[in-house]
């Protein structure tokens, strides 16, 4: 008797699922340590392509692209997180109001419109208002599509924090601002941090929209990699890919741990009803 949760074949399918998801990444990670200049032959373990990434002929180009990616992601994620936190407070702490439905739709709009459509529309918009495509246009586009990603975990967390905490603070002579700063914000923090991490990764990841609004000569890491891959996959790309993979894994792990810690502090101790 296996119980109602058991279905034969589901475990093998889960393993297949994981293999499909991880095999390409694992293969590239392994080949990034290939000592050979050819991508087909295995020339022994070596770190030469990692050295190449930082000192090779393309180091400056990729370095600049990485810098652009990183600073854009930092600014975009931070701005989007501030905007999303404010929005979440209005959506979840102000009771029902006119325009709430519309605001909700607006916040989620970037998730519903296909990326390629956003890319086209944004390019057309910047070109019409005469804003030269470049760093600034990438940044503006990124802030926009990062908002819903930052919003989701913040709103989820805020829903879990009962209004009574703020009321208790107000009852104990805290002003509205103090109740926010000393009580709500610390309780909301896990959500704010995961929101920021999510937005950061999303910004770092984006290729399609960036590719449309970047203009000539401006590159982020994904567009630089894409340009390079168009001429064939080279070993240094595999090294860069592995490094980026590592960064992503670190970020997700951080988000996962923060979330878990946040959940461990229950929103309502002593609640039985």
């Amino acid at each position: 008797m296996k119980g109602v949760r058991y279905y034969p074949g589901f475990l093998p399918l889960t393993i297949l699922c994981l293999v499909v998801l991880y095999a390409p990444l694992a293969v590239v990670a392994v080949y990034s340590f290939n000592g050979s200049a050819s991508i087909t032959e295995w020339g022994g373990f070596s770190l030469r392509w990692y050295t190449d990434v930082f000192t090779g002929p393309e180091a400056v180009r990729f370095g600049q692209a990485a810098w652009n990616s990183l600073t854009i992601a930092l600014i975009a994620a931070t701005t989007a997180t501030v905007i999303a936190t404010a929005a979440a407070l209005a959506m979840l702490r102000a009771g029902p109001f006119r325009g709430r439905q519309a605001s909700f739709a607006l916040i989620n709009l970037p998730l519903m419109v296909p990326e390629i459509v956003i890319a086209v529309a944004t390019l057309i918009f910047f070109s019409t208002i005469g804003l030269t495509t470049g760093y600034l246009t990438i940044l503006l586009a990124h802030i926009t599509f990062c908002i819903p990603f930052a919003y989701l975990p913040i709103a989820a967390r805020l829903e879990g924090v009962e209004g009574t905490y703020e009321q208790a603070a107000r009852d104990l002579y805290a002003t509205r601002a103090q109740a926010f700063r000393l009580i709500l914000l610390p309780l909301l923090m896990p959500g704010v941090i995961s929101g920021w991490l999510l937005a950061f990764i999303i910004s770092l990841d984006d290729f399609i929209i960036t590719n449309f609004v970047k203009g000539a000569g401006m590159e982020t890491l994904p567009t630089a990699i894409f340009g390079s891959v168009k001429q064939g996959i080279k070993p240094n790309i595999m090294a860069i890919s592995t490094l980026m993979l590592l960064v992503s894994v670190l970020f997700v792990t951080a988000a996962y741990l923060i979330n878990r810690k946040g959940r461990q502090a229950p929103a309502t101790p002593g609640k039985t009803t």
């Binding site: 407070l89 209005a90 959506m91 702490r93 102000a94 607006l106 956003i118 057309i124």
Partner: peptide
Amino acid sequence: ASDTGYRSLIGPLLLPTWAVIGIFMVLP
């Protein structure tokens, strides 16, 4: 949480969202 004090701030709190997504997504 009707009176945790955010009711009067709906406008300012949502303005950035409306402005950014409105200008850089709806308008485009």
